[in-house]
């Protein structure tokens, strides 16, 4: 049961985040916010394969939420409870989605975007191909960084020159990425991509019972906050 969520299809996985986002808009007091968060926490314990990754995500989201708590308190009339309600609401809004995004397989996602959601085939296929450049970008970034360091223009401890450094690295990476895009485009057209307005897909995009149950669970979790608010 704890690895089921890994086997669900990417759209089903992402639906958890979508419903948590939608549900969070109904939260307007602290009790509802805490209850909604509690339900997600229980679901995480029951259904997620590990606890470290969700906790790390929770940490990141909580840091963001703290700034919301403080700023809402300061700009919203110094109402402590309202401020905390907003903070917890942000966690409900963001945390489930940020955890689930970590389990999404980009290749499978592309299959489902094209076949289940019927997005334009060539755009999806090009996107799936571009995702493969991620690792290459990482290696290129490392080499660009090394070249700059050994040429006397590497990172320093000065924040302003580091800003320029980051800008120049980003630019160099984009140049390389766009040049690669030109080569990739030639190679893809040589394999018939130019005319592939209708194309088949090597892997199916099935909806199993598990996928449907995942979406139902996602909707149920998301409905907790609206239901509580309406009942209250």
């Amino acid at each position: 049961m704890r690895s089921a969520v890994l086997r669900a299809n990417p759209l089903a996985q992402l639906s958890i985040g979508m419903f948590s986002l939608l549900g969070s808009f109904w939260i307007d007091d602290l009790d509802v916010a805490l209850l909604a968060l509690g339900v997600y926490a229980v679901a995480a314990v029951l259904f997620l394969p590990g606890w470290k990754y969700p906790l790390v995500c929770l940490g990141f989201t909580s840091i963001a939420a703290v700034t919301i708590v403080y700023s809402t308190w300061r700009l919203g009339g110094h109402d402590v409870e309202e401020a905390f309600a907003n903070g917890v609401r942000i966690v409900v809004l963001a945390w489930p989605g940020s955890v689930m995004a970590g389990y999404v397989d980009p290749t499978r996602l592309a299959d489902y975007l094209a076949q289940s959601l019927r997005l334009p085939a060539r755009l999806v296929a090009a996107f799936a191909a571009a995702m493969q450049r991620f690792t290459g970008f990482g290696l290129a970034w490392e080499q660009l960084d090394q070249v700059r360091r050994v040429r006397g223009v590497g990172r320093t401890r000065n924040p302003i020159s580091n800003g320029r450094y980051a800008a120049s690295m980003t630019f160099a990476l984009l140049v390389q990425a766009m040049r690669g895009a030109s080569h990739a485009s030639i190679a893809m057209d040589a394999r018939g991509f130019a005319t592939a307005h209708r194309r088949t897909w090597a892997e199916p995009a099935d909806w199993t019972r598990l996928d449907v149950m995942t979406v139902v669970l996602a909707a149920a979790l998301g409905a907790v906050a609206p239901l509580l608010t309406v009942l209250a």
């Binding site: 296929a125 191909a129 893809m188 991509f193 592939a196 194309r199 088949t200 897909w201 090597a202």
Partner: peptide, 8 residues
């Protein structure tokens, strides 16, 4: 499989 997909 990319080319085969393109060729439907």
């Amino acid at each position: 499989a990319f080319g085969l997909e393109n060729a439907s």
